[in-house]
């Protein structure tokens, strides 16, 4: 039996996280040459108008190639970056206008797991200090922290006797478990997992994916799960958002996305995944030419225009950016050709 958090909870209509029109631009320093030529400063459009809902107890998978803005989007949702424009609501509360103090209170509800289990743990702190830090910040009395940390270690499958060890005494998979314990220390409702298994070996990767699923069922977590690996994403996600150059190009329930991908980029992405046992098998294989354009002052129209292989593509695609339109219930696509707006 597959575990289904949505079915178990009967998701309430109000989403836990509601993102609307979110933009995150980073300025590129303008040089004297730019000023001489009268050019304004240039911007990296890392996230460029994203609408997204994440429901209670749901896993939303976010997939895309490097540089497409998926990590920036996640960090902006947690307000680790100040958004350039747009709104982020968490349990109905607008985050973009909160003060730093109020935001700190909110972070009790929203935590993050990072990709690199080597770089994300302070090598000079013990496990107790690392996992206990969020508790300390949230004002848990020192006397209780050690007991809580021991419980957390047990929960993520580590021995509580390792509480006084340092990160270098653990393997990559165990370190990732420490990172997970730290994220869960404050009992969050929403966890952003940014490529949590990318740095791990296949057998360890499966252990961590299982752990994340078990914890979700146990604690009722909602995940924003970021990965470049479509197989991993398809395994953990209830719904999947495909991102390309700062925009979401397709959003659908996991099964639907793989059964009927609609956006040309999604189709190419799925067909590009090397599959176990696929040799000699006939299947649609789309080889995209080139690589994505730079997010510095990106093209005006459809971001995928330069690599799009659809016969229908025309001037509309080049000039007008397509909106994310619902084509069947729950399945949204940003493509003129698919939505019939050419």
């Amino acid at each position: 039996m597959r575990w289904t958090p949505m079915a178990a909870a009967g998701a309430p209509p109000e989403p836990l996280v509601q993102v609307r029109g979110l933009k995150q631009y980073f300025p590129l320093g303008s040089t004297w040459v730019d000023r001489l030529l009268g050019r304004g400063s240039r911007w990296v459009h890392a996230v460029d108008g994203v609408d997204l809902d994440i429901h209670h107890r749901e896993t939303l998978g976010l997939v895309g190639e490097s540089g497409c803005g998926k990590s920036t989007l996640a960090r902006t949702i947690l307000r680790l970056y100040e958004p350039t424009a747009g709104s982020i609501k968490f349990a109905g509360r607008e985050l973009t206008t909160l003060s730093q103090m109020e935001m700190r209170q909110m972070r009790r509800e929203m935590q993050m797991i990072f990709q690199d289990p080597f770089a994300s743990l302070n090598p000079r702190r013990t496990v107790e200090q690392i996992v206990g830090l969020p508790l300390l910040i949230q004002g848990v009395p020192r006397a209780d922290i050690r007991r809580r940390v021991a419980e957390l270690l047990e929960k993520v499958g580590l021995s509580p006797s390792h509480i006084d060890r340092y990160p270098h005494q653990f393997s990559g998979g165990q370190r990732q478990r420490i990172g997970i314990a730290r994220a869960l220390a404050v009992n969050p409702r929403f966890v952003v997992a940014d490529e949590p298994v990318s740095a791990l070996d296949v057998s360890i990767q499966a252990q961590i994916l299982r752990l994340l699923q078990d914890l979700q069922a146990e604690m009722g977590l909602a995940y924003l799960f970021i990965s470049h690996d479509l197989a991993v994403i398809s395994y953990v996600s209830d719904r999947i958002a495909v991102m390309y150059l700062g925009r979401i190009v397709e959003l659908a329930p996991a099964e639907t996305l793989f059964a009927e991908p609609l956006h040309p980029y999604t189709r190419a992405l799925i067909s590009a995944v090397p599959r176990v046992g696929s040799r000699g098998q006939v299947r649609e294989r789309i080889l995209l030419s080139g690589s994505p354009p730079t997010p510095i002052d990106p093209p005006k129209g459809c971001r995928f225009y330069s690599r799009c292989f659809l016969k229908e593509k025309n001037e509309t695609c080049r000039l007008v950016a397509p909106d994310l339109k619902e084509v069947t219930p729950g399945h949204r696509v940003a493509c003129h050709a698919v939505a019939g707006t050419l």
């Binding site: 165990q174 360890i204 252990q207 197989a231 995944v273």
Partner: peptide, 24 residues
Amino acid sequence: QGLLASIPRLGDRSYRLKPIEGTV
């Protein structure tokens, strides 16, 4: 066998991964 059972299959969610226990 363990390695192959640890790999998520694309677009198939009807099963649970069977990780290899422990580490190298």
